[in-house]
Every structure is written in C-alpha cells, then in structure tokens.
Design a protein around this nucleic acid. Sequence first.
DNA 1: TTGAAAGCGATACCAC
DNA 2: GTGGTATCGCTTTCAA
Lengths: 340, 340
Amino acid sequence: MAKRTVSIYDIAKLAGVSTATVSNVLNNKGSYSEKTKELVLKIAHEQGYVANFAAKSLREASTKTVAIITPDVSNDFFSNLVLQVEGHLREAGYSSYICNTANDPERESSYVFDLLSKQVDGIVFIGGTARVPIEARVDVPVVHIDHTGRSGVRREVFVGNDLPRLSYDMTATLFGHGCKQVALASVSASLYRTAEHDQAAGYYNYLQDHGIRLDKNLVLEGPYRQTSLVEAEQLVTECLESGYAFDGVVALGDRVALGVANALKKHGVDVGREVRVIGMDDSIYSRISTPAISTVNRHTSEMAERGVQALLALLRGEELNESTIVIGHEVIERATTLGA
Amino acid sequence: MAKRTVSIYDIAKLAGVSTATVSNVLNNKGSYSEKTKELVLKIAHEQGYVANFAAKSLREASTKTVAIITPDVSNDFFSNLVLQVEGHLREAGYSSYICNTANDPERESSYVFDLLSKQVDGIVFIGGTARVPIEARVDVPVVHIDHTGRSGVRREVFVGNDLPRLSYDMTATLFGHGCKQVALASVSASLYRTAEHDQAAGYYNYLQDHGIRLDKNLVLEGPYRQTSLVEAEQLVTECLESGYAFDGVVALGDRVALGVANALKKHGVDVGREVRVIGMDDSIYSRISTPAISTVNRHTSEMAERGVQALLALLRGEELNESTIVIGHEVIERATTLGA
DNA sequence: TTGAAAGCGATACCAC
DNA sequence: GTGGTATCGCTTTCAA
C-alpha cells in the first residue's frame, strides 16, 4: 500500500523489463522467457497488482460487460431470469450490470444512456417495454427476453413465449374442465401494456374460436397499484359483490392468481371445485399456497439460455437468421383446477 | 454514425474550440461564454455525443460506482435491501454493480478482485459472510448490512439488527403466550453460519435466563439444500414423526416459518392455537399465507438508509465515530401466535 | 474566456 | 525474446 495504486509500469520497473513485456506475461500473449514470466508474476503478486479496468476498456474499446435491464428484480419471475442470464454470461466471460427500472420508463431510458456511456458491449432487456429511446444511438446488440414491441435497434433479437397461445391454452384448460363462465384477471402498469395485451389476446381468441360470447363484466383489469396480489384480490371481491358469477378465472400471473384465490376463499368459495383458477409463471407462490395453484411453466431456463446464446452470437459479429425465438410453455395443473 | 464513436475531440473541432472548453461546458465547470456553450451543446447533441466513462474514470481515478454484494437477489429480504440501497446511492450520484454470489464463497472473493479491478469507489455487503479475501488489498470503504464478523478492512462499518436480542424477543413472545415447549427451526448454509449463530443465541439465552432446560430434540437445524421452505417442512415432519411434542416454534426466517406451518397443517395441527409459530423478516410470505404468520419487522428501510449514509460519509473521507450501527426491530403478531 | 499539452494505465505495433 | 512509443478519451493545470 505504498503507492496509491500499483500499475503495470511499477511492475516493469521492479522487474527490470518493459511494460510491453509485463502486459504480455499478464495476458499470456506474445512471447517471453519462462524466467521473465516467473519474475513478473512474482512481483505482480507481491505488489498486489490489480489491472485497471478503466484503462483496459479505454484502450480496447470493449468492456466485456453487458447490461441487464429489468423492471423489477424483487419479482421472482424476473429475478430468476436475471440470475440465469447473468450466470450464462459470466461463463462466457462477460460481467453484467443489473439495472432495475422499477417500471419507470424514464429510468429505463436514462439507464440506456448511462450504459452507453459505460460502453457496455450489449444489452439484455427482460420484461418491461422494448422502448429504447430513439435519440439513443444504440449500436450494440440487444436481446429482448419476455418483451414485446420493436425498438428500432439494428441488431436485436426477441426471445419469449407465444403469449397469445399461452393464454389460449390457459383458457382452454378451464373450459376443458367444464367451466362455463370464465373470467380474465389482469393487473398491470398502464404504461407497459403491450405484454398484457398479447397475454389477454389468447383469452379473447379462445372465446371467439368457440363462439362464446364475451361478457365484459368478467374482464377484471386493474392497474399495478400496490402489489398485484392485493389488487387482484380487490378486483375479484368487487366483481363478486356486484353479483357477477363465474366458475373459472384465467389469471395473468401467479400473484394475480393468488389474490384471486384469496378473495374467493374469503367469500367461502371452494377454489378448485366451485371456481377453477389458473395462473401463469410457475412461481413459488403457486406451489406454496393452499390450495396449490395451477399455472403455466414458461421455460425460463430455456429463455435465458437461448437469449444469451443469441447475444453472444451477435457479439461475435455473426448474423442471426431469426430475429424472434419462440420458447415453449406447459400447463401445470394443480389443486385449483383439479380440485383434488 | 459516420465515425465509430464521437469524442470530445470531434466536438471541439466542429465547434472550432478546444477540448478543454468542450469539457468545461459539458461539466459546468470553468468559464466560457454563453455563445460557446450553446454552440458546443448543440453540436454535441447533433452528434449524439456520449461521454466515455472509461476515459473519465481513468483520468479521475474514481468511478462513482459502488458494488453491492449479496448472496441471493431472488430472496426478497435481500432484494428489497439491494433495491433500497441502490436507490439511495443513485440519489447520491452513484451507480451500483449488483453482484449475486449464490452463497458461494469463491464467487464472493472473485467478485472482490473483479470489483477492485473495476475501481469501484466502495463496497456494500448485504447478508452472507463478511469474508473479504485477505490477499485483496481493499482500501475502499466497506459497509456491511445484516452481516456479522470482521473482515480486516480499514474503513468499514456494520449496520444491522441486534440478532441475539431479536430472537430473544421472538422466544419471549411465544413463552408469553403460555407456550411450554418451544422449538427452534433454522435452515442455513453451513459455510455461512455466523449470522445464524447470532440468531440462535437469543433462543438459548432466553431459556437460560428463565431456567428452562434445553431439549436438543427441539433444535431443528438443517442445511440449505433445496429451499428453506421445503427443508423446514421436512425438519418439522421428522420431528413430529419421531414423537417429539412442542407447542411453539421460533423460526429463523419467514420461509422457514412457512415450511413449519405447512408441515404442521399437514399433520392436522391447528397452527396458532395448538402450536404457535413466529418467523422473522416480515416478508410477503408471512402476510399471504393462511394463517398469517407472526414475524419480526427488521426495519430494512432504516438499514439501507443508515448504511448508505455511512458509506457516503466514508466516501467523503469523513471519520465515523461508530463502526457498528444497531437497527431496531419489532415483533408483528398475526394469526400464528394470536390464534385469531 | 480560451487553448496547448501532460498524463491517467494498458495495449500493440514495429523495431531491434 | 524484448522494448520504445503512440494511442484510447477525458480532465486539468498553466499560459495566453
């Protein structure tokens, strides 16, 4: 701790060699004698040398860092994706900035500028909008995971489920159990409706395909005010107290489903028999609640993996032949639809 | 997009001024005429200029960035802390690296080296160990939130609850309700036992203070294998099936408490009346489960706030007169102890 | 008010 | 196998 910071230059002087040689040794590049190598390494270690990342990045015009931008890391659907993406990137030698926008579009765009300044090599959006500020000249590759909408960036790829189909399957599951009046429950931030819109589509499509008349009183939509759980509970309570009847609920999210189930339970409804409920995400919420909530596994591991694969390919400068990667999904039935 | 990247030099040339002036204008420093300012700003905007952070950091030997190291961002106790810390830092003009160690000590120490290389201005540890690798010459300030154990860093401060006292209060709550046989349930990674050790202490202390004999069969400790919830469920099940009786459980964590409650419910026990359970963290789990779980609010907002305050003070070069900041806590009683 | 130039730490080309 | 040196983009003295 003699000097404020020990640089490659200090090592060079101490070892009696040039900075070029030190750099070579430290990076396993070029050529040097075994003897020099050992000496340099020894001194570097003794001095507690740590490479200055800023200098390296400046010189190389690359940071080996990518940004992961997500609306809410405290939501475990997103946090799991973030963690997996981060893990795969790490294996590939990339560090990640994890950026939480708290569903705030302004923050999302301010992050983009900030990250551009930080010279990230790529950006991964998880959830939220695909709203890259147009003034921002993003020329790094961008991957959108569970995202909808275009952003106008040159090199970008979308990875996610077929959302209309996913909710179609949810709806079909309920009708398949003999439900006659199926409600839709959705809680979302108004500014971020694109994904919810796609998700709701499957519900509408199913009704249409089967000649079932849409009852707008059974479309329970609310803003994301407090937590989706509480919000959903309220929506269902209001609906019940208005006297509307239903025997099935397609809930766009497990937390929403949990809120729905809670409201029903409080009204003495036997969830799973009298009213069937299906959520989406296969989160821990759906597993721990009683009764256990039927849901849809969205194959997030695959999303993360394919997303990172695509990003790495773009980073390598490869051209991708598909700009949209569709990930499968799977309905998981539990007590709230099986009634077991 | 004519050039690969537009630098301060390009702006200077276009505006017919020097880089020094451009730098001044862009940073509101030094002095310049209103006219120059407007011209520079206009050109910078036109060219889509974005400051190169690496160059700036290199020059200033400061990154205005701090690292937040945490064992598990998918645990909402930690993720909430992380988010709050990040928010406060952001307000103070600092960016954050969020680093997830996945409870892996190797990763924790590799992060430290990595971050040192990235020239972070400070480090915030949340949860986990306080194990800063001794070979690492950390001379940036370090704040430990909900952490125990010293690390040997020069400028560091600890912020957290009085854990022995916290669990003492939990235990007291159960005995206060007339419980006679109170068990302790704890799930933790063996490598990270320091915090759990402190937490368990309160339970032991209470028994000792009140002349209650410790029954080791009622100490339910398990490793963190799958999830603490499942693990706890298993521990309690085993205990019940071995024929040990208890009428109260101090669970070190809400997820643990939830697992305990689930196991009891499955065995037909009326949780809250026959057996009282108290968890810790006041997480969403304790609120959404039925019956609602009694818990301890650990004042995480205050932890985050005081922690960041301390870090900022250290960053400013101030000397702190206290190296340990104790945050209060509060028992929140719900159905699992009130039996309502 | 403005500018010339040094220097932060690392890399890489090109001589030797 | 080794070393001198220009360079990345920016900030900051010190002069003008």
